[in-house]
Design a protein around this nucleic acid. Structure first.
Lengths: 205, 205
DNA sequence: ACGGTTCTCTACCAAATGGTAGACAATCTC
DNA sequence: GAGATTGTCTACCATTTGGTAGAGAACCGT
């Protein structure tokens, strides 16, 4: 697992390309539904070359998950830092930030849905990365509520609402289609705008 | 596929037991991650007995989906009919109704998430069952809004919000755990209550 | 030029998967 | 009671899966 650290990687983006393809495939079709052969074919290499970079499928899954958590963290942290100071405006900025990767790479959030398919405890170390993010958002919301700049409520619900909406809708266009909704009825951008104005109405003090 | 219609089924609940086990397993772990052997073992029969009742895995999946759609329809329709007349109260009643199967059988809603893993068009006939449900809810919300009994907004968002929250949270306890939330922080019942009061705040005229 | 490292490949394997063929027992119909 | 139907099973099969063994090419520092 630390092999990569010992060897100076000369010039090979293979590992990154594998991670990228694996993220998309795993996120859209699930861990169990995607074979190493398919990922390798997508990257354009042989399966055994893939197994050179990642010792096993589990290894690859772990790497993909850590990658995803790090990427989400960067996006959200940046949004929080650079957002305006008014709580509702900042909330909107964060929501926009969360929606952005969802729009461009729905697979990223699809990975979160895949966590339940892992053996128990297999994603434990993700907690270290994602928990601070959620905790920080929660304490910020609570502070604003106590300061009277947001209506009282449960910060956890706000976060859960945003997460569920983005993850649930962004990664499930098929479920929406089956229900009879086209992308016109509830496309991602429209959904984002509706959600923010909705939260504004619900949270204005 | 019509074999069952020709033969009068004497006394055998095997088919129903298979459907029940398959619903739970498919809904929690996904179509591709569950083998016919596992389902058969859960029911307590041999795989070949399962294949006697359902000609193929695809057949079984289709049957499970139709079953799910019908069950959801019954629950929601009943809630709409027997709910009080005040729009916010009725909305709350419907939300409670949607949460009920999610609490007792999260797998039922988990099946909706699985739709995206099906080959394109494989779940087309589900539209006939589920679309009327969603359409009906949408027109009702719109009517109430136009009558001034609910604040103006996009009915689609309300429905999407409720669906995403229930489906996203109910069927993904693992994702919540990874983020660092225990069931205490955002258990289903608490979430349901928070969501309804939240919607009340946002939708009161 | 040479020995070692890095990287990709072909060939192969054991296990699991969806599915078929058909035997056998219980039950129903007449 | 005889024959057909219904339901469950054991045995088997072709394909796919994750993974191993090891050969060979390209590149490195010396």
């Amino acid at each position: 697992m630390a092999r990569r650290l010992l060897a100076p990687n000369r010039r090979s983006d293979t590992r990154e390309r594998i991670l990228e393809s694996a993220t998309i495939l795993f996120g859209t079709r699930g861990f169990d539904s995607v074979s190493l052969d398919q990922i390798a074919a997508e990257v354009g290499i042989a399966k055994q070359s893939l197994l050179y970079w990642f010792a096993s499928k589990d290894d690859l899954i772990q790497a993909v998950l850590v990658n995803m958590a790090a990427e989400l963290t960067v996006v959200v942290e940046a949004a929080i830092r650079s957002a305006p100071d008014m709580p509702l405006d900042r909330l909107e900025a964060v929501i926009h930030a969360v929606f952005r990767p969802a729009v461009r790479r729905p697979a990223l959030l699809g990975l979160l849905r895949e966590l339940s398919r892992l053996p128990t405890g297999a994603a434990e170390h993700l907690t270290e990365i994602l928990n601070p993010l959620v905790t920080r958002a929660g304490t910020w919301l609570r502070t604003e509520m106590q300061a009277g700049r947001l209506r009282q409520g449960d910060p956890s619900l706000i976060i859960a609402l945003v997460y569920a909406t983005v993850a649930g809708i962004a990664t499930e266009p098929e479920a929406l289609r089956v229900v009879g909704w086209s992308q016109d009825v509830i496309g991602l951008r429209k959904l984002r705008n509706e959600l923010t104005s909705f939260l504004r109405a619900a949270l204005a003090p």
